[in-house]
Amino acid sequence: MPRAALWAILLAMAVLLPFAADLAGQGYYVGFATRVAIFAIAALSLDLILGYGGLVSLGHAAFLGIGAYSVGIWTSHGVTAAPVHWATALAAGGLFALVTGLIALRTAGVAFIMITLAFAQMLFFLAVSLKAYGGDDGLTLWDAARLGPLDLSDDRTLYWVAIAWLVLFLLLGRHLVASRFGLVLQGARSNERRMRALGFDIRRHRLLAYVLSGMAASIAGCLLAHMTDFVSPAYMSWQRSGELVVMVLLGGIGTLHGAILGAAVLLILEEVLAGLTQHWMLILGAILVAMALVARRGLHGLLAALRGRR
């Protein structure tokens, strides 16, 4: 089957999912699918810097928080227009990425991991100390966000909006990694020294990638707040950041669509494990360790290996 047809079918299935859920009497799944789409956006944005840029960020959940608080703060002041929330999130997320990226990218490798984690933690504590916006307890949003005539508190509407953003970011991402910019980013991941000797300003390319990635993840944060009608510092906890990295690795790093697969698989896995036992984190932790030790290229790599063997 040609790839384009495959993608078209997948897209059609995604768009029609709410109807199928209705027919099956399982409306709950629309909410779950929205969650998957939202985390897929965040994971996809992380894959841009992680998979293509070779930058291991362990603080990507900070952008989820930025997006969520953009919604929360505006809403608490009576502004419910989603485009305003989104624009604020894009600007704030981009700015945060720019400032922290300027510092974090002065270092390389392992320091980048630690610094991104630290800056995310900084934002976490900032949110905790914002008593006016709920502090530690978080902030419940009483008014639904609106997109023109659409009410984003409607499950299906929000689902379609999330899918639209996901498709947009996937297309943009694909375009970007195939562009000159993407080629330079990938070259630098593989051989930084050679790229400098060719005359590329690697740091500037990485910084731009980091900013774009942060902006996309901030949108995911907005959608998360639209979905839960609640924002809290927990959205940017280090566990969240870790989960995003896991999603990217699970689905296959450096593929973009792998991040979507990884988000779906991890969320489903969590759901299934949580159904089995209250102590599902124990199992998940063990799975992750095993994955790091043996299945290094994620499901994508596993599938590729199986295909190769046949």
Partner: peptide
Amino acid sequence: LASVGRGFGMGRAAM
């Protein structure tokens, strides 16, 4: 590419 372009080239395909 290193010898021809100075911008980021985000809008332009590479290969």
